[in-house]
Design a protein around this nucleic acid. Structure first.
Lengths: 109, 109
DNA sequence: TTGACAAGATACTATTTGGTATCGTATTGT
DNA sequence: ACAATACGATACCAAATAGTATCTTGTCAA
């Protein structure tokens, strides 16, 4: 579970991989189609795809000789959940700050 | 701006750094206090702090001979915004999926 | 004032990482 | 049947990364 979050964050830390996700958000694509959009070999793109798959950010299935890559929501969810902890924290901080300001202004009134 | 997102994602990709953020969410801490929570040297922790600072995930100020580290919302925001693009995408996918199912069931009725 | 403590900076090392080159296998279309 | 295409896997290389050790500077307290 925690390993899960780690592999998702790792996968998102590379600009090429984030760009792959952007492409896949528009349409499912084969390895070759994705490769056409980057200045690197198919092998390099395939490595990125494996890392994205390990992070549950994409999934893939074979269709004849093609590998169809598509987005997966699982990885995105675990990352978002991790970040949510801090959103909660920001809110608390803002709340206590607001409370402090209010009590201060009421005091000075 | 895009470099901004990159440095934030990079900073979040390390488990030690995410752990540091967790600690700082509970209270602001000096470099030494943080180091006490990890099995590594102060120099290593300081390197992580620099990376977190570059990713706008923490900020720091000197207080006497101490360096007080605290959370910064900027980095978290840029990451969340990047992810929001996909949340939007998920919703659309779910909507079109629901529409497809509905139109199918009405057809078969 | 001087010893102890907190931090900054840098040189160095081992491991990870992003990339290529290249091999083999399966599938397609003529 | 067979040439072309798509993919998987692996060996290899250069650069980035996470860590240590060590030296220096600034600050506190007795």
């Amino acid at each position: 579970m925690n390993q899960n979050v780690q592999s998702s964050f790792k996968a998102l830390a590379d600009p090429t991989r984030r760009s792959i996700l952007m492409h896949l958000s528009k349409q499912d694509m084969t390895v070759q189609e994705l490769t056409d959009n980057f200045d690197m070999t198919r092998a390099a793109v395939k490595k990125h795809l494996t890392i994205l798959e390990n992070g549950n950010l994409i999934k893939a299935h074979r269709q004849g000789r093609d590998r169809i890559n598509s987005l997966d929501t699982l990885g995105m969810k675990s990352v978002t959940e991790w970040l949510n902890y801090f959103d909660q924290f920001w809110d608390e901080r803002l709340d206590s700050l607001r409370t402090a300001i209010e009590s201060h202004t009421t005091k000075s009134n």
